[in-house]
Amino acid sequence: MTIWQRLRHTLRHGPAPLPAAAPSAETAAALAARLDAAAQRRLGRSLAIRHVGAGGCDGCELELRALNGIVYDLERFGLRFVTSPRHADILLATGPLTRTMAEALARTHAAMGEPKWVVAVGDCAIDGGVFKGSYACLGGITTLPVDLVIRGCPPTPWQVLEGLRALIEANATPAR
């Protein structure tokens, strides 16, 4: 298909991204309760994400890059990856947290303004995954308060998307 044929196709049939199902109401409710308990200020429906690779294998990063691409098109949900932690609302960490990355992770978190969320993506980030017990790892994102975990080795882009959308829903629920 040439570019002109593709352009015609897109104009006729609408844009390319795949339709997405609604996020899990259960996860959103749990997150909302947690948010109320912490009496955190709400962030609204547009959230900026700072990713920290805490020593993973690049598998989770591959799927996060896919999430950012045309097929999943993260930005249509109000989510975007940013490069400065000072602009970020969410710290999204992958990897088993190597001892060598602990300092950089702590500094990135400290540089983010309040309120802020921490999301651990992938089995490694939750408890170290297959690297549990290594002399070089701290066994997951254990040094920060984690608000949401997304399982999988690596989780599919859909799984990550569902978790992040639950976070938006929780955020948008008016405080009681």
Partner: peptide
């Protein structure tokens, strides 16, 4: 480099 050293050979 070295930030992603997971101790793979030891495991």
């Amino acid at each position: 480099l070295g930030y992603a050293h997971k101790g793979t050979l030891g495991l």
